[in-house]
């Protein structure tokens, strides 16, 4: 699928774009000199410029080594599929965590990942997920008194 060359070039463009965003954000706050010395945007402005310049250099290097890099693989079908599934599950986890709290999301996530990615029976995954959630509850909530994000289920059960 994607070659190392494409990945190098895309990343160089991406980091350059990030640098541009930093520069744009810095200009908003002034990049010059005022009564108190350099303005707040000055340092980030030059950092942004540095990122852009170095990114361009990376892009040029990738172009210069085009032949070698184009032959090298970056991500092919089965690998990309695993990464995509992982990312999809992670995004789902974060959305679930925002809606239902971390405990419920953790149980669902571990169960789904073990079942979908690992090919385990659903109850094995579910058991694993519940054990994880209980572990967090005991260690964080009880032992260290660090509260985690909770949702409607905990509220219904009266756990604060």
């Amino acid at each position: 699928m994607a070659s190392r060359f494409q990945a190098e070039l895309a990343t160089a463009l991406g980091t350059a774009a990030f640098g541009a965003v930093v520069v744009a954000g810095a200009i908003e706050y002034g990049i010059g000199w005022d009564s108190a010395g350099p303005e707040p945007g000055a340092f980030p402005f030059y950092v942004g410029i540095l990122i852009i310049v170095a990114s361009l250099a990376n892009g040029v290097q990738a172009l210069a080594q085009h032949r070698a890099l184009a032959a090298a693989g970056f991500l092919d079908g089965p690998h990309a599929r695993r990464v995509l599934i992982f990312m999809a599950l992670s995004v789902a986890f974060v959305i679930l965590a925002s809606l239902l709290g971390l405990y419920v999301a953790a149980v669902l996530y571990v169960a789904a990942a073990a079942w979908w990615q690992g090919g385990y029976r659903p109850w094995v995954g579910a058991a694993c997920g519940i054990a994880t959630a209980l572990f967090f509850y005991v260690v964080l909530e009880k032992a260290f008194q660090v509260p985690l994000l909770k949702g409607p289920l905990e509220a219904a059960l009266g756990i604060h």
Binding site: Y109, V110, A114, C128, T132, F136, P147, L148
Partner: peptide, 25 residues
């Protein structure tokens, strides 16, 4: 396949405990 998802959850929970912000996830 079993321990990986647990580590993922540990990472996210760790990110949350830094400042109790959902945005950090």
């Amino acid at each position: 396949a079993l321990i990986g998802p647990v580590i993922v959850v540990i990472c996210f929970v760790g990110a949350y405990t830094v400042g109790n912000h959902t945005f950090d996830l």
